[in-house]
Write a protein that binds this DNA or RNA. Structure first.
Lengths: 229, 229
DNA sequence: ACCTGAACACCGTTCAAGT
DNA sequence: ACCTGAACACCGTTCAAGT
C-alpha cells in the first residue's frame, strides 16, 4: 500500500551516494536542460535525497560544475588519445585533438561557457599539454612553443564559447543549416556601408560546415606556426 | 529634520531614469564588484528607486548585461577607430583592433565571459567587420576571408575568456607578475611524465608580458593568413 | 560517517497601486 | 507614461537532528 500511494518515483538508489554519482547526475541534468537546469534541488530529486546530502561530497556549485566539465573534457581527451594514429603527422594529431574538444562541446554545449570560466588548471591544462607536444614535434623552437600552443588553445576555446552561445540561441526544433540560414539572411540585410565585409561573406556562412570551418582555422594557425623559419 | 533622520543617502537623482543611466550604473556595479555584484536590488539602490522601475526601461537581466557589454565594446571599437593611423599596414590595424578588445577586457573583466555568451550579433559583429576589412586589405582571396576573420576573432575571444577567468582567480591584492609566478610555480611541480611540455614552458610564463604574448599570437595567425599563396 | 529536510538569506521578476 | 515596493517563486547554502 505504501508503495502504491507513492505519487512520484524518483531515481532508484541501490548504490550509495558518491561524488562520482553526483557528477554523473549533474552532467545528465546539464545535458537535458542546460545550465539553468542544474540546481541542488533538482539534483537531489534525481538522486532521491535531500539537497544537503550533496554538500557532504562536494563543496558547492562551482566545484560541481568544474568537476562535470573536468569529467567530460577528460573523457574526450582520453578518447582522442586512444584513437590517435601512431603514424599521424603532428598536424593530423592537432586536428584530432581539436576536433575532440569541438565535438565534446557540440554534445555538451554547457562546457563551452564553462571552459572560459575555468582557471588555467585541469582540464584545460591537459589539452594544452597535448597540443604542446605536437608543437614540439613540429620542430618549433623552444622560445616560440608557448605562444604556438596558446594560440591553438585560445582559438579552440573561442570557437567553443561561440558554439555554446549559438546552441543557446538555437531553437531545439531548427536544424543547424536552418539556423545558419537565419543568421546569413540577417547579415545580408545589414547596412551596406557599415557592414560591407560581413555582407560580402554572408554567403559563405550558408555553405560551410561548422566542423570544416573550425578545422580550416586550425590549419591556418598551423600554417602560421610552421611558416616562420 | 526629515533630511537629518535619513539614515542612508543613495545616489542623488536630478536626472530621470533612462535606459542609458541604468546601463551606466550597471557597468559601474560590474566593475566594482564583478558579475555577482549586479543585482536589481543593488542597481535600484544605486539609482535611488525600486527594482520594478528598471523593468520599465529594460526587459530583464540578460538584456541589461548585453547592453552593458555592447556599450563597453562599442566604446573600445570607436576609440580604436579614432586612433587608427591612415598609413598603418593591415597587420598594424589588426593589432590595434585586437589590443582594443584586449584592453577593454582588462579594464572590465566581466565582459570576457559575457562575449562568449553573446550571440553572433552586435557588438561582436562590429569587431568581426573591422577585422574582415583588414583581411581584405591583406589581399586574402574571397573564399578564405571568412575563415581568416573568424580565426582572429575566435582567438581574441578565447584569450578574453581566459583573462576574465584569471582576473576572477587573481586576488585583488596580488600583482599580475605575482599571480603568474604562482601559476608558473605550480606548473613546475606537475608530474614530469604527464606534463612534460607544460613543465618545459613554465619558465616562459614568468617572463612574458600578457599583452605581448597576446600580440605574438595575433602575429602568428596573421602569418598563417598571409603565408598561404 | 553519512544523510535528512526545514530554514536562512538571498535572487529575478511581476503587478496592483500610485503619481 | 512612469515609478513604487510588496509579493511570488525560486535559488545556493547551512545546520540541527537523525541513523
Amino acid at each position: 500500500m505504501a508503495a502504491a500511494t507513492r505519487a512520484r518515483r524518483p531515481e532508484r538508489r541501490e548504490e550509495p551516494l558518491s561524488r562520482e554519482r553526483i557528477v554523473e547526475a549533474a552532467i545528465e541534468l546539464l545535458d537535458e536542460s542546460g545550465e539553468s537546469g542544474l540546481t541542488f534541488r533538482a539534483l537531489a530529486r534525481h538522486l532521491a535525497t535531500g539537497p544537503g546530502a550533496i554538500y557532504w561530497h562536494v563543496t558547492g556549485k562551482d566545484e560541481l560544475l568544474g568537476a562535470a566539465t573536468d569529467a567530460v573534457v577528460g573523457g574526450a581527451m582520453t578518447a582522442a588519445a586512444d584513437t590517435a594514429d601512431e603514424d599521424a603527422t603532428p598536424q593530423e594529431a592537432v586536428r584530432a585533438l581539436a576536433l575532440g574538444v569541438f565535438d565534446a562541446i557540440d554534445v555538451h554545449p554547457w562546457i563551452g561557457a564553462q571552459l572560459a570560466r575555468s582557471p588555467a588548471q585541469s582540464p584545460l591544462l591537459r589539452v594544452f599539454e597535448h597540443l604542446g607536444r605536437q608543437v614540439q614535434a613540429l620542430g618549433v623552437p623552444h622560445a616560440a612553443q608557448f605562444t604556438a600552443a596558446s594560440a591553438l588553445l585560445n582559438y579552440i576555446l573561442g570557437v567553443g564559447g561561440q558554439n555554446a552561445a549559438n546552441a543557446r540561441e538555437h531553437q531545439p526544433g531548427a536544424t543547424r543549416t536552418e539556423f545558419l540560414d537565419v543568421v546569413a539572411a540577417s547579415w545580408s540585410n545589414l547596412d551596406p556601408e557599415e557592414y560591407a565585409f560581413t555582407r560580402a561573406v554572408a554567403d559563405q556562412l550558408r555553405d560551410h560546415d561548422d566542423r570544416e570551418e573550425f578545422l580550416a582555422g586550425i590549419d591556418l594557425i598551423l600554417t602560421g606556426i610552421t611558416g616562420r623559419w
